[in-house]
């Protein structure tokens, strides 16, 4: 089966399939998180009072720094691949996975602290939306980790067979990962600061 434009770009669109596909997927993700942000606004506007300063800014800021750094290492993993520096690519991808795991560990301690204080989702609407938004975002992080581990492990075989296709896949992974980072950039002020 020969499906065209898996690697090379189609002349009239200037795109390969995976690039268009991942962007369409991200478009739907924008609408998913859009609906949740919309929910946040509606609950906040409708609430008699909205708690502020419930969350630890330190935790939030640390996780922001971690995710931004992981975005940089992700783009470096892709760029190294473009420059045919295989070792560097592996290194940066591994660091990205490490940072992502670090993020989740932080998140776990943060959740544990709140649950310890009985601040569970049913405590109030603020914690409800906090757990939902960060939980869904956390699932996206987990998804990203799975994909990156795949490309560090069995998925890496493709790099020998078809290096260009592998690079495209890493680029798509990167686009997804940056999007996850981008969502957090909005989640941080919305939940932790305001």
């Amino acid at each position: 089966m020969e499906i065209p434009y898996i690697v090379e770009t189609r002349a009239d669109t200037g795109l390969n399939n995976v690039k268009l596909g991942i962007w369409l997927f991200l478009a739907s993700e924008v609408m998913l998180f859009g609906a949740l942000f919309s929910t946040y606004i509606i609950l906040r506007v409708g609430a008699p009072e909205w708690p502020r300063g419930e969350l630890s800014v330190i935790f939030g800021a640390a996780n922001t720094i971690i995710l931004i750094s992981s975005s940089v290492t992700m783009v470096m993993a892709w760029a190294s691949l473009k420059m045919h520096a295989w070792g560097k690519h592996r290194f940066y991808l591994l660091v990205t996975v490490g940072l992502a795991l670090f993020f989740l560990v932080n998140k776990f301690f943060e959740y544990a602290e709140h649950v310890g204080k009985h601040e569970i989702p049913s405590y109030n609407t603020f914690f409800a939306i906090y757990y939902t938004l960060t939980g869904l975002h956390g699932l996206h992080i987990v998804g990203g980790i799975v994909v990156m581990l795949y490309f560090l492990g069995p998925g890496a075989k493709l790099a020998k067979k078809n290096p260009d296709q592998f690079t495209n896949r890493i680029e798509a992974t990167g686009l997804y990962w940056h999007f996850v980072d981008l969502v957090w950039i909005f989640l941080f002020p919305v939940l932790y600061l305001l």
Partner: peptide, 30 residues
């Protein structure tokens, strides 16, 4: 992040098109 890491500063028109549509409906959703 979008412009540099995701290379949106120079992308193809189909991607801009799809995103423009998304932004419009995102605003509707908001």
């Amino acid at each position: 992040v979008a412009a540099v890491f995701m290379h949106l500063s120079h992308e193809k028109k189909w991607i801009y098109g799809a995103l423009l549509l998304t932004v419009v409906f995102f605003i509707v959703l908001m």
